[in-house]
Design a binder for these strands. Sequence first.
RNA 1: GGCAGGGUAGCUCAGCUGGUCAGAGCGCACGACUCAUAAUCGUGAGGUCGGGAGUUCAAGUCUCCCCCCUGCUACCA
Length: 555
Amino acid sequence: MQERILVCVAWPYANYLLHVGQVAGAYLPADIFARYQRLIGNEVLMVSGSDCHGTPITVTAEREGIQPRDVVDRYHPKILETWERLGISFDLFTTTLTENHYATVQEVFLRLLERGFLEVGTQDQLYDPEAQRFLPDRYVEGTCPHCAYKEARGDQCDSCGKTLDATDLIDPRSRFSGARPVTRASQHYLLRLPKFQEALGAWLTKQTHWRKNVLNFSLGWIAEGLQDRAITRDISWGVPIPVDEWETKRIYVWFDAVIGYLSATREWAQRSGDPEAWRRYWEDPATKSYYFIGKDNIPFHTIIWPGMLMGYGGLNLPFDVPANQYVNFSAGQKQSKSKGTGTWVLNLLDTYAPDVVRFYLTAIMPESSDSEFREDELIRQNNDVLIGTWGNLANRVITMLNRNFDGAIPETGELAPESEALLAAARAAFEKAGAEYGAVHLRAALNEGLAVAQAANRYLGEREPWKAVKVDRAHAAETLATAVNAINAVKTILHPILPFSTQQLHEDLGLAGLLADNGWRFETLAGGHRVGVARPLYAKLDALTVEVEVAGSPA
RNA sequence: GGCAGGGUAGCUCAGCUGGUCAGAGCGCACGACUCAUAAUCGUGAGGUCGGGAGUUCAAGUCUCCCCCCUGCUACCA
C-alpha cells in the first residue's frame, strides 16, 4: 500500500529573492503535499535547486559588472535561507553548477544524439559586429513597431506588452555596443520534438486526472504540431556541449534545468550513501512524480521534458503537473521580479511567523485562477480565522482543562449524541482532507481542517462547559474530553500546512516526539493523560504597523 | 491575431459529468454567551452567476457570438 513519491519543484533563478507568487505557486504547495505524503507513510523525495544559467542571470551579472557565478553566490544562500525559515522541507536543494549536474546533462544530451533525437540545424540570428557576439532577443533594443516606444526589447515591448521578434524592431541596436545588429547564420542542435508528437499526444490523452488548464494547454501544443527546438545557444555561460568543435556554444538553460530533476535525485542518492538509490524514483514505474510549477512553465514540463524522457528511455514520465496560476500583488499588479515589484518572502518572514505566512498563502493559493496578495488581508485572516477559529479554540480548551480538571483528560462514560457527532466529524475529516491533499487541492484541505475547528467551537457553545462545570461536572468533563480530541485531530490534519504551530500544540497537549512521525491518524487521548500549559499558537497582529518592502531592489 | 484559463453577493473565492447550485468565508446589522488571544455561537442582508442568442421538460453548469482580465505564442522562462 505504501507508495513512492518524487516531488519535483521548479528551479528558481538565483538572481533575485523569492517573492510570494513563486512560493504560493510552487514551493509551498510542493512542501505541503510532500509533508502529507510523508505523514501517511509514503516514501517521499523532494528535490529542486537554484537555476544558475540562463539569460536572467547573465543580464544581472552584466548590469552589475560581475560574473554570473557571483550572482549565484549572492542569491543561492538567500534562497536556502527562505526554505529554512519558511519550513520548506527539501530533501535536497542543490544548484545547476555541480559536476554531477553537468555530467548528467551531457549524458542525456549524448544519449539523445545517439538515438537520433538531436540534429544540427542552421538558424539566422542577430549578431553584434562590434562586440563580436550573437545577441539573444532581449539583448536587442529598438523602437516598437506597434506603439513606437523607443526602449522596446527584442523579445517584448514593455510599453504595449506585445510579443516581438527582434527583427521587427525599428532601428535595432545592441545592448552591448549600441551597434546595429546584423543577421548571421549560426548552427545549433535541435531537439526533434516532432518525433514524439504521436507518443506525447497518446500519453497526454490518458492524463485525465490533470488539471483542466494544464491538460488542455498541452493538448493544444500537440494539435498545433510540435516543431524542432534549438537546445543550444551562442553564449559562454552554461553547460558545455559534449561534442568537438562546439566549444564556443552552450546548452540552452531550459534543456539543462529540467534535467536537474534527474541530476538532483542522483546527487541525493550519492549523498545518502547509496548511489543507485535514484533508480527507485526514476526507473520503477510504480513511483509517482509530481511537478510543482507556475502556469508559465507548463509546456516545458508536459511536452519538452516528457519528450526528452521518452527519447532517453526507461525513465518515468510525470504523473501529475499541478501547475498553479499567479498571485497578484494589490491593484492587480503582477509579482514580477523584472519589474521590481513584489513582496519578498524573506521580508515577510522578518515580520510574520512562518505558519502565519504559510496559512495565508495556502488560503489564497492560486489553484484555479489568479489570486491576490494583500498584507491587510493576511493580518485579518490571521486574527479572524487562524486565531479566532483555530488558535483560540485550542487555547480555551486546554486552559479550561487546566483550570477545572488539573490538566488531566477526564474519564468519560457513554457519550451524548452531539459528542459522538463531533468525534465522527473529526474522523471523517481525515478522509476528506486526505483526499484533498492527495489531489493537490490544498485550499480545500485547509478548509476541511478548519471546518472541524468550527464544529468544535459550535459544540462548545452548545454544551457550555464553563457553566456546566459548576452544576454537572460529568457533563463538563465529557465536553472537554471530546473537544480536546477534536483539537488533536485538527492538529494532525493541518500539520502539513502549519508544521511549526501544530508541533507546538502537540507538545502543549503533553505528547512527546515529532508530530511528523506520529502518522496520519485520529488519535484519542486517554483519560488521565495530562496536557501541558497552553501557549498561544499565534500572535494577534495590529493592522499594518510594519511596512513591508514591496518594491525596489532586494537587499 | 491564434491557443488556454478565468469573469458567481461590498471583498476573496467554492460550485466535478445540466435538474435543493444560487453557496462559503470575511465585511456589515441585530441577538446570545463570557471558558478563551474583546476570541466564540446564532440570525439577517436579496448577487439578472460578464453581455446576447440558442439547445433542453430543465443551464453559472452544454452550443454560438461579443466584451474584459491573465498566461502562452516555441531565442523570457
